[in-house]
Design a protein around this nucleic acid. Sequence first.
DNA 1: GAGCGTTATATTCAAGAAAATATAACGCTA
DNA 2: TAGCGTTATATTTTCTTGAATATAACGCTC
Lengths: 119, 119
Amino acid sequence: MKELLLTPESFHLDGRLWLQGPTDRFMGIGRLELLGHIAETGSISKAAQAMGMSYKKAWDLVSSMNAQVNTPLVSTQTGGSHGGGTVLTPAGRQVLEVFGAAQVRFQEFIRQETERLLG
Amino acid sequence: MKELLLTPESFHLDGRLWLQGPTDRFMGIGRLELLGHIAETGSISKAAQAMGMSYKKAWDLVSSMNAQVNTPLVSTQTGGSHGGGTVLTPAGRQVLEVFGAAQVRFQEFIRQETERLLG
DNA sequence: GAGCGTTATATTCAAGAAAATATAACGCTA
DNA sequence: TAGCGTTATATTTTCTTGAATATAACGCTC
């Protein structure tokens, strides 16, 4: 492989890491980034917009995440002076931190393996 | 997260690792297992059957892999006493070994992270 | 030359995922 | 009460992927 078959200019190692629940995916890189944008913007619609994702898609993801745990990750509010909003709960912030750290370690793993396979 | 939100009975960490080419995926766990079955059986059709995969699907994967490198991973032969067959080239055996080892290390990474997140 | 098992390839069909569209509810403000 | 931005939800449409089906070529054996 090294030195011939696969050049780093044309090939790269990639991967995904996620938490799987009994029926649905619970947490992955997309859901994690969505949580991050919600934490920043305080809004599902703004978070969706920032990710180039439809509001419905983002709402479905939030709904799926909240439905799979006893303690919701995000708290939503409809109506009010700014139309409503969404914030992360302490549980949501914890997931963002803990799973985010796992994603960072995963990226480091991929970097190491890239070195081995293509470096 | 630990001790409450996510129980190991209901949630588990999962992941995928693959080599991406300029346009198509070059190698992943499915393609790797297909190479392994081809090495064992000497036949695309038997390998496909062993994986519960259609022959066409398996052939498409083989075609994709071979098309992305200068040195083919598998060598096919049509006709002959047993109808034909398919064997791994030295390059194919090398990919099977090297990328297979990466997959093993990836599974170990997932095991470690599972311990951290859910253990 | 007929038969066999395999590779090689095109076409059609079905299923699932994603995107697009639409509408309503909510609770503040003016 | 009308308007606003947001959440909440259903429906339709499009895209992608995989499965199913069909056919031909190939090179040996009998």
